[in-house]
């Protein structure tokens, strides 16, 4: 069991919302990963849908690259559409 791969778990809390990363766990295969995720992450009614992805299939950005990756966006406020007047009827934008 020590050799079981690690899985990243994503839970959709309600219909219509996105799946969100909630944590990781060990399981022998995808079916067991779903069952384990159900027991570990949805026992307090947190979810209506589960995705599991083997952790090794996730490619992450390098923290050392954060300056070239993210810094350039910081001074470009004009990329945020905050200058428009929204009608009241549009509630969530």
């Amino acid at each position: 069991m020590k050799n079981w791969p690690l899985w990243e778990i994503f839970i959709r809390s309600k219909a219509g919302l996105n799946h969100k990363h909630v944590g990781s766990l060990h399981a022998a295969d995808e079916e067991m990963a779903i069952q384990n995720a159900r027991d570990v992450y949805t026992r307090r009614n947190e979810g209506v849908s589960i995705w599991v992805v083997k952790s090794e299939h996730i490619t992450a950005s390098d923290p050392d690259d954060s300056d070239p990756l993210y810094e350039p966006a910081k001074d470009k406020v004009y990329r945020h559409p905050t200058f428009y007047d929204l009608p009241d009827e549009v509630k969530h934008m």
Binding site: M1, H26, N36, D39, V40, R43
Partner: peptide, 9 residues
Amino acid sequence: GPILEQDIA
């Protein structure tokens, strides 16, 4: 339990 996840199950 043999592992945490099955302990919880």
